[in-house]
Design a protein around this nucleic acid. Structure first.
Lengths: 161, 161
DNA sequence: ATTCTTGCAAAGCCTTTGCAACTGC
DNA sequence: GCAGTTGCAAAGGCTTTGCAAGAAT
């Protein structure tokens, strides 16, 4: 687990601020409030469908359409990051969390976060070499996590018996 | 442009070999032959829909379903790589081409390839640190390419007049 | 009051699939 | 001739959207 970054505002008030500061001011609704609180009440990666399900399970009534629409705003507001992990998307907290990259276990779906300063440097360097104005990068390592790997080994041993 | 790798077989014969060597031998059909030849007759990135359109434009009659089915086999055979560039997928030649990563222009969609040995090392290193058995990685730099950047600058200058 | 947001259901986009006809081996 | 492949059209996920009703400022 990475160390959270110190932030001065709650995600909720940061979002209000974002909405109010739009060229066309947008409204902060109760559906949005419920969503922001729900999302920031736990730190995990999730996708839109999962979130819909979790929200329903928690007894909150927010329509699928609103979930999608609000997710887009939260990403735009800098509260969430949208990751493309292989075929699937995942959202994660951006606000209050340091920049990092991911290891993605193809076996159990687990997402492991890591930070690496060399990567950041390399990214700048490569962009510059190609006279490219960079706006961000994605680095994902695919493979099998220690636990799944262990399980696989154990199974293999058993299969041989 | 990267320097092609020396290969001993044509993509077509490599594909035949792959098909024949499956647990359940698969057949090499004329639709597949047409597709392989078409795809390897030019070196570019493409997605499935684009390919369907280009194939139709070239006067070849291959159904959408077959295009999708054959693309999957070509990836499995190691002839093509499937990239996830942001929201969209792209296919590129894998066979006869060195490993590399990508800069993706958000403005014109251009894909620039590059090679960087540090990245490969870093990838192994990070995986090891997390006792992760890596099977591959994705590194994509997003931003604006030199041309689009130039165009944007020029436009900005003109707007000021 | 005005204008943005919501929920619903419908439509969209890309991709996969069931099935009958067809074709490599 | 058998088993894998094709084309079609239909179905599948996931996501977006048009619209009327409802809510925030």
């Amino acid at each position: 687990m990475l160390t959270p970054v110190q932030v001065s505002q709650s995600p909720e008030s940061k979002f209000r601020e974002y909405l109010a500061s739009r060229p066309k001011p947008q409204r902060f609704t109760s559906a949005q409030q419920k969503m922001v609180r729900f999302i920031f009440s736990s730190h995990q990666h999730f996708d839109a469908e999962q979130l819909c399900a979790d929200i329903a399970r928690a007894g909150l009534k927010i329509s699928r359409a609103t979930v999608y629409r609000t997710l887009a705003k939260l990403v735009d507001a800098g509260l969430l990051r949208r990751l493309q992990l292989g075929e699937r998307v995942a959202y994660e907290h951006d606000y209050g969390y340091p920049h990092h990259d991911h290891l993605h276990c193809q076996s159990c779906g687990k997402i492991i976060e890591f930070q690496n300063p060399t990567l950041e440097r390399l990214y700048q360097e490569v962009a510059q070499q190609h006279r490219f104005l960079p706006s961000g990068y994605t680095f994902v390592i695919r493979g099998t996590c220690a636990e799944c790997n262990q399980a696989r080994m154990t199974k293999r041993r058993l299969d041989l018996v």
